[in-house]
Design a protein around this nucleic acid. Sequence first.
DNA 1: CATCTAACCTATTCAAGGC
DNA 2: GCCTTGAATAGGTTAGATG
Length: 180
Amino acid sequence: MAEDTSSHKMVTTNHRRSRTKFTEDQLKILINTFNQKPYPGYATKQKLALEINTEESRIQIWFQNRRARQRFQKRPEPETLDSSQIHGDQPGVEFQSREARRCRTAYSTSQLHTLIKAFAKNPYPGIDSREELAKEIGVPESRVQIWFQNRRSRLFLQRKREPVASLEQEEQNKIPEGPQ
DNA sequence: CATCTAACCTATTCAAGGC
DNA sequence: GCCTTGAATAGGTTAGATG
């Protein structure tokens, strides 16, 4: 909703999603949750999303960034680090392991076909393309983004192992495509 | 322009589900 | 049991907002 209908910049893809501006209240809740649980599971993130009226994927990104920032800041200790109680979980906090992650998405053959086809055209789709794709195959946009990330990573991996053969692979992956 | 940080990336690891 | 692959992680980069 509240679409600003295409200024004059052409809708053509490849822009990133517009930057989210969290309110003070939202940040308060996020930070508070982070201090208690820097690694929230899916259920917690969903609940947070509902509570502060934001997408779950934005919350996931926020926690990622927050952890990175905290790691970076927390580094005033160039001291020899041994002889401490390393890798012991605090006694008292019985390991309730980590919270459950999101359920694995099971893509159908036709969904995969659509994704692969899109990947061949553009392995780095912007927010508009991702959303369109998501709508087309009926999954959240965040799943589409993750799928592309995994796909790219594994393509790189494959290229490292098989420096030459991957080119043929690419040719094969091209699916004859009508104009849209 | 400097700083901050959301968005995004690769590389790697965890783990669900199929064979 | 192993393999494929979606989900999560660490760690780094890009870019939008703001002083």
